[in-house]
Amino acid sequence: MLCAVLFALVTWQVAAGGPLLALDERLGRAVFRPHTPSVIAEAGADLGAMVPALPVLAAALCWSGWLGHARWRGRRQGDEGAPPGARPRWWLPPLVAVAAMTAVPALVVPLKLWIARPGPLGPAENYGWYPSGHAATAAVAYGAALLLLLPHLRRALVRRTAVVCVVLLNLWVGAGLVRRGYHWPLDVVGSWFLCGLLLWGVACAVRWSTASRDTGEAPEAGADPEGGTDPEGGTDPEGGTDPDTGADPKTGADPKTGADPDTGTAPDSREN
């Protein structure tokens, strides 16, 4: 919800020409260096293009899907001590990640056409510069890839390192876009807020899939969850009686007549 509120605030300031817009353009002109060659800034801006971002996401989709399916098959066969009746939801996070990536152009392009904000290098034909498509592509592609792979990374240090690398990568992309004059700072920040909503959906799918995999339990073999009887021993765990004959499994006596199954006589007749 916080990302939605911040995105609405930034979009309102850009569309209405609010006071935040003047500060944004002043900061952008201070950072913008069109005549200074910067290989690092240009490389960062290029990382937000479809060509490097989509293959990274595709590789993460394939890897996480393969690991999730393999783990589910192992659990069905009783491996790792997991219940064989767990429902397969390994496909959910990759599916939501693909939907989030597909939503990027579906959301960014109409906003560009509607707001039509001129860029640092001047207005563009038929569309504007807010929000940044490159920043949105990088945020969703690399962010979704991280969320898909985190459940499969066992060491905490590796997970923390991966998170830091993805955050720094997106900062590099945003700084490169502003430095080279392709976008204003608010173009990049607005894209990050918008993509925060999309990545929240991917995170929820990953959490739901992981929780269902870890907490899914099936009844133990040989136990009837309703009647409380053991199919192998045929005994009632509470009453200790045979559910078919009603006999006591320890003495073998009939609970109604008290007859001994070996002699067929009741205790009173043996005394007389």
Rank of each mutant, 00 (worst) to 15 (best):
T161Y: 03
R75T: 02
T102Y: 11
P249Y: 03
A259H: 10
R179F: 01
L23R: 15
G65W: 08
A49T: 13
L107W: 07
D79Y: 10
W208P: 06
V51C: 03
P219D: 00
A247V: 13
W66F: 12
G234H: 09
M101I: 01
W63R: 15
A103W: 04
R29L: 04
G176K: 05
P84K: 08
F193R: 12
T235I: 14
D24C: 03
T210S: 11
L199F: 01
T11C: 10
A135P: 02
W184H: 11
M101G: 08
E80Q: 15
D236V: 08
G228D: 07
A99E: 05
L148R: 08
A15S: 13
L27M: 12
A4I: 08
P19R: 13
C62R: 11
L168C: 12
L57T: 01
A59V: 09
A41P: 05
H69Q: 09
L27T: 12
P94F: 03
D268F: 09
D248L: 06
R76A: 06
S132Q: 05
W200N: 06
A156K: 14
A259R: 06
L95V: 01
H69V: 04
T263W: 02
E226D: 13
D224I: 02
P110V: 05
M50Q: 15
V108S: 07
D214V: 11
V158N: 08
C195A: 07
A139H: 10
L6Q: 10
V5K: 07
W90Y: 01
V167G: 07
W129N: 15
G133M: 04
T251G: 04
G216I: 01
E220R: 14
W192G: 02
Y130S: 06
D24R: 05
G196P: 02
P261L: 01
G81S: 09
A253E: 08
L198I: 02
V56R: 10
T265M: 13
L198H: 03
L47E: 03
E42C: 09
N170Q: 11
W200P: 04
A136W: 01
D46K: 14
L150W: 04
W129E: 12
G18F: 00
L177S: 02
T137R: 03
W172G: 09
W63I: 12
T241W: 02
L146V: 03
V104T: 11
Y127G: 10
A139R: 04
C3M: 11
Q77T: 04
L111Y: 04
P83A: 10
L168H: 07
H152C: 09
R73S: 13
D262Q: 13
W172R: 04
Y182C: 03
E232A: 12
E125V: 15
T229I: 15
G133I: 02
N272A: 14
T265A: 15
A223F: 13
T102W: 15
T263H: 06
E220Y: 05
E226H: 11
A162N: 01
V189G: 00
A82E: 00
L157R: 15
R117N: 00
R180K: 12
R33L: 06
H35L: 10
P88Q: 15
V206C: 08
A162L: 02
L67Q: 05
V104M: 00
P123L: 01
P88I: 04
A162P: 00
T257S: 07
A103F: 04
L95M: 07
L57K: 08
L148F: 01
L150V: 09
D260F: 00
